[in-house]
């Protein structure tokens, strides 16, 4: 009886692992395809797509596509721009949205519920519908920078950052997480005489690791994949991000090897960021039930 049970357990385990491996393959193979294709000349790349060779480093393998990609476009500049814009936006967004959520959850004030409802309602408004009004506003706003007071935000880093610092989804994530924190903690701190900024900084945020990771990853992906907005507001190559840069490779005859090399390079920051926050991200999903 005990043997049968052990066998069943082993079989279940084997089945579970087989399913997980299959799922892993489905998700990993596109990345493997991209990496392998980036090492092959176009002709071979296209021929290999019809067989398993597409996933193997076989044939005329070299780094020529990477060299050619750097010749065709300022790849390092595009990656730098995207990492800078994304990094600054993520940091500012976590700060501003967590503060907003803190105010919504812990501080009682008139109109709080109504305003939260309005913010959450923005989740259903696609960015495309506000892109043109936003462009018209951004093109006329003042900015004080190194050159003093200037008018119009076009062709800058801040035009790619500021409009995306606050957003409904990030506020929503923080609100949901903060609601699950024990209210006694906050009450005890208030009784002890702690101010709201002290409670935010010393009690709430130290407990917010998982939601910070989740919000950071989602924000990072959204920002790093920005295409329409930078296309509209950036006309100078010096400020272009990676997704607009991708279009450099789509000429009349597409250089697919270079496309794959470029994609492999621009995927590195995303993977690195995800791997860095992976544990906290999964913890957050497990604790809040929020799907990424």
């Amino acid at each position: 009886m005990a043997t049968i049970s052990a066998d069943n357990h082993g079989l279940r385990l084997a089945t579970r692992y087989a399913v997980l491996v299959l799922i892993a393959i489905v998700f990993i193979f596109p990345l493997v395809f991209m990496l392998m294709s980036s090492l092959k000349p176009d002709q071979q790349l296209l021929q290999d797509t019809a067989s398993l060779r597409a996933f193997l480093p076989v044939g005329d393998v070299s780094l020529r596509n990477y060299t050619a990609a750097f010749d065709r476009a300022p790849v390092a500049l595009f990656i730098f721009n995207s990492v800078l814009v994304t990094g600054v936006t993520v940091v500012l967004s976590l700060l501003v949205c967590s503060m907003a959520a803190f105010a919504f959850v812990f501080i009682g004030w008139k109109g709080r519920d109504f305003l939260l409802t309005v913010i959450l309602a923005t989740l259903i408004v696609p960015f495309e519908t506000i892109a043109i009004p936003l462009l018209l506003i951004a093109s006329k706003l003042p900015w004080i920078g190194m050159d003093g007071l200037t008018w119009g935000w076009l062709n800058s880093y801040h035009v790619q950052i500021v409009p995306f610092i606050a957003d409904g989804l990030t506020i929503f994530l923080f609100v949901q997480y903060f609601k699950d924190l024990p209210g006694e903690l906050i009450e005890a701190a208030r009784v002890e005489g702690a101010t709201w900024p002290q409670i935010y900084r010393r009690i709430v945020m130290p407990l917010a690791g998982p939601v910070l990771a989740t919000a950071a990853i989602l924000k990072f992906l959204a920002m790093y994949n920005q295409y329409l907005w930078p296309l509209m507001v950036v006309q100078q190559e010096g400020y272009r991000p990676v997704m607009v840069g991708l279009q450099y490779f789509f000429q009349q005859n597409v250089a697919w090897g270079e496309v794959m090399a470029y994609l492999s390079m621009i995927t590195v920051p995303v993977l690195a960021f995800y791997l860095y926050l992976q544990r906290a991200f999964i913890a957050s999903i497990a604790s809040t039930g929020v799907k990424g």
């Binding site: 018209l136 296309l231 509209m232 006309q235 607009v244 789509f250």
Partner: peptide, 23 residues
């Protein structure tokens, strides 16, 4: 000169026109 990738060019011009920022 400012160069644009072809696939993104027309949209950039239309956006530039809306923003009053054409070359």
């Amino acid at each position: 000169m400012q160069s644009f990738p072809q696939a993104a060019y027309n949209d950039s011009v239309v956006a530039g026109a809306l923003a009053g920022n054409l070359p």
